[in-house]
Amino acid sequence: MATVVTVTSGKGGVGKTTSSAALAAGLAKAGHRTVVIDFDVGLRNLDLIMGVERRVVFDFVNVISGEATLNQALIQDKRMENLSILAASQTKDKDALSEEGVGQVLDQLADMGFEYIVCDSPAGIERGATMALHFADHAVIVTNPEVSSVRDSDRILGILQSKSKRAKEGGKVQEHLLITRYDPVRVDQGEMLSKEDVCDILAVKLIGVIPESKAVLKASNTGVPVILDEDSDAGKAYSDAVARFLGDDRPLRFVTAKKQGLLSRILGGGD
């Protein structure tokens, strides 16, 4: 039985694709056969972040419309043999994602023996996003610590628990909260919501807090999921999040501002 994990947020640009890539690579690294699918038809960029953009021949929509087989479209990661990528189409329109077609592809992936199917949802609440939500067993809600992002996440959670297949069948999609681009200094200055505020508003179990980090941009420029940059703060934070997702209990890291040293305070410097 494959587990479908949808990474979603409502608001755009909060770090869904970065997190989908990290989660998929992290699950594969933990030994689980994993596939990550880009649902952002027309704006694909998961393949870039995974570093496979030059290997995309066929995509998700080609498979749904019968123009290619799933085997032809799946791209195997060069770093980890148990990780595959299914890219989004850059040209086809969103309506190509039919519920029936998406369902069939997911069933086929399950039959092929994938344990985790990670779905990178587009922003908003339109077709791509609702399709990614529809089949979810788990949802990772990616939120930035600011009011509009939190509010949109709340709205997505409402849609998830009313429109998803599981909800319609009387069940519940399991929710996980992932706070990204967290900057403890700005939290202390009152410019960002604290992780406590976000948890209090959303009332969803927190699986990770990813710091604002230069390592993320570097990783996406080089096409390596940031979780594989094991020395980076964001990489470590994502590893912790994946471990928590898999049931581990780990303390949060990178959530408090570094204390300024006495000398730098006297000299008026900072970091």
Binding site: R151, D154, R155, L157, G158, I159, Q161, S162, I201, A203
Partner: peptide, 24 residues
């Protein structure tokens, strides 16, 4: 929780919510 954007109407009856009701 009852999330932002969700509407619940208990017609001709009382309504009991167990958990939070979000803004919106």
């Amino acid at each position: 929780p009852v999330r932002s954007g969700v509407q619940i109407y208990a017609k001709d009856r009382d309504l009991v919510i167990i958990g939070q009701v979000s803004e919106g």
